[in-house]
Design a protein around this nucleic acid. Structure first.
Lengths: 211, 211
DNA sequence: CTATTTAATGACTATTGGTCATATATGATA
DNA sequence: TATCATATATGACCAATAGTCATTAAATAG
């Protein structure tokens, strides 16, 4: 029964080849400017073939968004540990997020794209898959926060899952700010790291001056 | 010399008519699905005419983004006051932001679009205009925060302008979360207001349990 | 070796953003 | 009023490109 399996593998391989090509084209030219012919050329396949593996340009781009999320979450898993103190875990996640944005700027941009700009007018199956991709690692994050609440380190008036989502989205926002700071004159000579660390400082202690 | 003035007015009027039509089409169909012919029909003009007033579809959409920002900033100006306490001003801004998202959901979505999803591959003149639109009101916000720092209410280890940008972008992120919470099973039975108020709670006091 | 299933191709279609030669209306001039 | 000049509007047209599908090629089964 080795033939079906090999075919399966080859199909998966081809799918990945297409994704690799698409990624390079998207990252180089941007979503709008990249054409399916570009991608087909880069993948050394005909355009028709792309559509055997992905049903639209949008779906191709989504698949890359999912890759981005997977990489990020993988980085999280590596640094998170139930043994560490809650606040350290949160900081580690933050630092991993920063590393992600630095090491994979293109993936990061793709991720921000999907976090921020989906057109409520039409949510696709892919969107749902993307949200699902987030769920497991989010559960891990919630667990860590819940620990912190239980052992009295974190405030207990906000549920762990709300905290998780709020922190996540605040942080995404700040990373986006960091990556676009060149357009804000105020921030010209501030480093990305400074912005992000200040963000975490605020999360930790709040805005008020500590007596 | 009334004729040139009248012509000027008529031109401005037509520009606005086109924007109104574009807005309705964009809000109904979304950026991608809306066509220039749709907009021309709605405006009862030929497509060519649209291009006498706006040089591309993108620019049209931008102009609507600017409208959105203007409305929001106008709402801010109405609630901010140098006489109020800093923290109250911040809360007022937050509440205005929430009202904006509720009262003008379409403008809000447009704003989030521009905040989050610009394609670094090609920044247009319009982008710069959009960022400029933000600058004045941002200055107002910075001033308020600076007051808070000066009179010892707010922490003084982060500059007012960084604070302003960080708070702004965190809050945009959270509002986006609120508006998409239906896709997060965890948040199904949480209200938008609760999420946003919790966000401000965290900003005020931080994550740590107070003593 | 032949038949059948599966995969790949690229010419073709439909849609749509954007252009431009032409037409129309408006206002100035005499 | 008649004529010219200018500003504005039109819609047929063009180019680009996402997506399709009849045809071809390759792989596998019998």
């Amino acid at each position: 029964m080795g033939i079906t399996e090999r075919k399966e593998r080859e199909k998966e391989q081809r799918r990945n080849d297409i994704l690799d090509a698409a990624e390079r084209v998207f990252f180089k030219k941007g979503l709008e400017q990249a054409t399916m012919d570009d991608i087909a050329n880069k993948a050394e396949l005909s355009k028709g073939t792309l559509y055997l593996y992905f049903k639209s340009k949008e779906e191709l781009y989504f698949a890359i968004g999912i890759r981005a999320h997977q990489i990020l979450w993988h980085m999280f898993e590596k640094v998170i540990s139930p043994d560490k103190k809650v606040m350290d875990n949160i900081f580690e996640i933050g630092k991993a997020f920063v590393r992600f944005a630095n090491e994979y700027p293109d993936y990061f941009r793709t991720m921000v794209h999907f976090e921020a700009d989906f057109d409520m007018h039409y949510i696709t199956e892919q969107h749902k898959r993307l949200f699902q991709t987030e769920e497991d690692p989010m559960a891990l994050f919630v667990e860590i926060l819940q620990n912190g609440i239980d052992n009295g380190v974190l405030r207990n008036d906000i549920s762990a899952s709300q905290l998780a989502h709020i922190l996540w989205t605040q942080t995404t926002g700040v990373l986006k700010l960091a990556s676009t700071k060149d357009f804000h004159p105020d921030l010209h000579n501030v480093s990305d790291e400074e912005i992000i660390m200040n963000h975490f400082e605020i999360l930790k202690y709040g805005l008020l001056k500590n007596q």
